[in-house]
Design a protein around this nucleic acid. Sequence first.
DNA 1: AGGGTAGCGCAACGCTGTTCTAGAACCTCT
DNA 2: AGAGGTTCTAGAACAGCGTTGCGCTACCCT
Lengths: 197, 197
Amino acid sequence: MPRPKVHDDALRVRLLERAGHTLSAKGLRALSLRQLATDVGTSTTAVYSLFGGKPALLTALFDEAFHRFGTHLATVTPSDEPFEDLVQLGIAYRASALDDPHFYEVMFGTIRADITMDPGSLARAAGTFEPLLRMVRRAIDAGALRAEEPSVIAMSLWAMVHGLVSLEMRGFLPPGAPDPGQAFSKAVRANLAGWRP
Amino acid sequence: MPRPKVHDDALRVRLLERAGHTLSAKGLRALSLRQLATDVGTSTTAVYSLFGGKPALLTALFDEAFHRFGTHLATVTPSDEPFEDLVQLGIAYRASALDDPHFYEVMFGTIRADITMDPGSLARAAGTFEPLLRMVRRAIDAGALRAEEPSVIAMSLWAMVHGLVSLEMRGFLPPGAPDPGQAFSKAVRANLAGWRP
DNA sequence: AGGGTAGCGCAACGCTGTTCTAGAACCTCT
DNA sequence: AGAGGTTCTAGAACAGCGTTGCGCTACCCT
C-alpha cells in the first residue's frame, strides 16, 4: 500500500549535516526549517516525519555537538605528567569552543530551556566528561592533586574552563590583557594549584 | 503644531518595568512586543518611538539587569577577613543569578549576539565588577593572596563563579552531589586557595 | 487493471518583528 | 473664531517563522 519512502534515513543524515553546517556558519538564528528544507531539496514535512519538529532537530544537533566535542577532547592523550595533562585538556576545550562557537552555544546556551532533552542525550553529554574524571583520578593517584572527591575537582576545573571561555566569547575579558590564551592557561593552572596536596 | 505626546518618558518607564516583569516571570521567549504593548495599554509603535525596536529594548533590559546585579552584590560589605569576603561575594553572585535566571540570561546568554551593545552599556556592565577588583586588591594588601595582577585573579574568580552557576542552571552538576551550595563554596575556596601566597 | 492507502508537497493558520499609512489632535495664523 | 498645517500615534500590511491539515500522487495487493 505504501509508496517508496523519500523521507528515509539518508535524507535524515543530509538534513542533519546541512543543519550543522548552517548552524556553524550563520548561527542558530539563521536556522529555519523552511530554508533548511529548500537547501536540501525537500519540504518542511521531512523534518516533521524524520525528527518531529524543530526542538527535536535541535536535540539531534545537541547530540552531534557533544559528539564532536568529545572527539576533539579525546585528542589529548595522557602523558607522564598528569597535572599538565589537565591543563592541556582545558586548552583543547577552549580551542574547540572558540573554533565553533555556535555549536558550543547549542551545548551550553539558552536553547537548553526550549528543547526537551531525553535522558539518553543528557547521559551521553555527561559522558563526554568521563575522560576528564579519569585524568583527575590519575593526577590524584600520582600525588599531583589532593585526595578529594574526584568529581568535585573535575567539576571545579570544568566550571573554570567553561566560565573563562564563556566570558571570553561574550567579550567580558579585561581589555588590558594582551593574550587571552596565556591568561587562560594561567588561570587554569592557578585553579588546579588550589587542589594540590 | 505638534500634539501632546503620549509616548513620553513615563510610558518608557512603564514599558521597561512591564518588560522586566514578564522577563522574570515567563522568560525571554514570552516577551513579545505586541503582548507588551497590550499589557501597558499602548501600541507596538511606542516601543519603536521610545526605544527603536526589540533589540534596543533588550539593551535597556541588559542595563537594568546589570544595575540590579550590582546592587545585589553591593550588599556584601568588607569585613576584616578579605579572603572570606571574596567567598561571600561569590555566594551572593550565585544567589542573585539563581534568584532571577532570566535576567542572568540577558546578561550572559546568547542574546548578546543579537543586540547591538553601545560602549556605554558595556562599560557600565564591566563596572559592576569594580567591587570585586577592590576586594581582590584588599586581599592582596592583607597578604591573603599572592601579589599577582589583581585583574587576573578577579577574572579567575569571576570565571569560576560564573561557570559553576552556569553549569548548575543547565543541570550539568553531578547527580551525586547532595548540596550544590556547599559544593559551590568549596570550589570557590579551592580556586582562591590557588592564588594564596 | 483497478482500488486502497500510505506518503508527501503545499497551502493555510497563528504568531513574530518591522514598516507604512491614514487619520486624529493639537498649535498657529488669519 | 475658524481654517490650515504639522506632528504623532494606532492599526493595518508585509515578510517570515514553526506547525498543522488538506489533498493529490504513486505505489502494492487483489
